[in-house]
């Protein structure tokens, strides 16, 4: 049975498992479980269903499991095959601390790496096989897990080497860049200096740190500072399949679109991180005259500047 779409992986089975394994439960407690783990209207559909199940008994206002055991579903074949497949991924070693390879020996992988080709992935991705890269990743991961500072020797893009103390807060991975970055709080003399984003591949060494930091870490407000103040607004024309191409390509961004039936154009607002502005700009340039940037004013100025410069180069 190799299907991805099955009730045994479904949300309702998961909720019922939770209910029988934690019984007896009151209606309110069950509602809380359903609201937390189910879909928005699951309470309405699932609650009456519970009373019809022969392995659940309602008495004295509580729901009791009539099962003899707690339910723990074994791992399925497709899950094992997926584990085997990911174990063959070059990035898997980054996480393979206590892993016993022999446990997956006789399992057929769900897919092989060679069955996929990522043809436009950047060629300067991280060296996941590198012993030191793996060592650094694991140390950063452990520091992130335990919220402990580490001393990092880092080479910035201009080649300058810095030594600072950080508490790693979150990893970020990009399949396009094929790189790990991580956000970290920079600590000095027990104080939080700022949050930074470091490239895993630029780390030269990671050591234990004698720094301490007792305060709270909250990355979100720092990241929110990078949200664009105004979205870029573009008008996309029904030419060279541009609307479809544009919509798929920009589907990783938060956006809001309107389609005008009369002009067959689509107007879209794209919300982006300020640090990604150039990336958005060149992505939009790649669409050529099949779209027009309408705003923001600042973004439009940047866009026009490039076109003007190019036009002048053509005119000679």
């Amino acid at each position: 049975m190799n299907s991805l779409f099955s009730e045994i992986f479904g949300c309702y089975y998961k909720v019922i498992t939770e209910i029988v394994n934690n019984s007896p439960l009151s209606v309110d407690e069950i509602r809380n479980i359903i609201n937390e783990k189910g879909f928005a209207e699951s309470c309405f559909h699932l609650l009456p269903k519970l009373e019809t199940l022969p392995f659940i008994e309602k008495r004295d206002g509580k729901y009791y499991s009539r099962l003899e055991n707690k339910i723990k579903m074994p791992i399925t074949n497709i899950e094992k095959s997926w584990l085997k497949a990911i174990s063959q991924d070059p990035r898997f070693e980054l996480f393979a601390v206590d892993y016993d390879k022999s446990k997956l020996d006789n399992i057929e992988p769900l897919y092989e790496q060679a069955q996929f080709k990522y043809y436009d992935k950047y060629s300067d991705g991280d060296d996941f096989d590198n012993y030191y890269y793996q060592k650094h990743f694991r140390k950063i991961n452990a520091a992130l897990e335990n919220t402990t500072p580490v001393k990092i020797v880092y080479q910035n893009p201009k080649g300058r080497i810095t030594v600072n103390h950080y508490i790693p807060v979150k990893f970020e991975f990009s399949p396009k860049d094929d790189k790990f970055r991580f956000f970290a709080a920079r600590i000095r003399n027990g104080k939080l200096i700022d949050y930074v984003c470091l490239n895993m591949g630029r780390i030269l060494d990671v050591r234990n740190s004698n720094e301490t930091y007792k305060g709270k870490l909250n990355l979100e407000p720092h990241l929110e500072k990078f949200d664009c103040e105004e979205p870029v607004v573009v008008e996309v024309y029904d030419d060279r399949n541009a609307i479809e191409r544009f919509m798929v390509e920009f589907s990783t961004y938060r956006k809001n679109s309107e389609f005008d039936d009369n002009t067959q154009t689509c107007t879209t607002k794209i919300y982006y991180r300020k640090t990604d502005e150039i990336e958005v700009l060149i992505k939009l340039l790649s669409f050529g005259p099949t779209l027009k940037v309408l705003g923001s004013e600042r973004f439009l100025k940047l866009f026009k500047y490039r076109i003007k410069k190019q036009y002048e180069m053509i005119k000679g």
Partner: peptide, 19 residues
């Protein structure tokens, strides 16, 4: 993917067999 429907028999047998 977690929204597959099932019959009463499916859910009863799932839990009773596992138990």
């Amino acid at each position: 993917y977690k929204s597959k429907s099932f019959t009463d028999n499916d859910v009863i047998l799932h839990f009773l067999i596992l138990d």
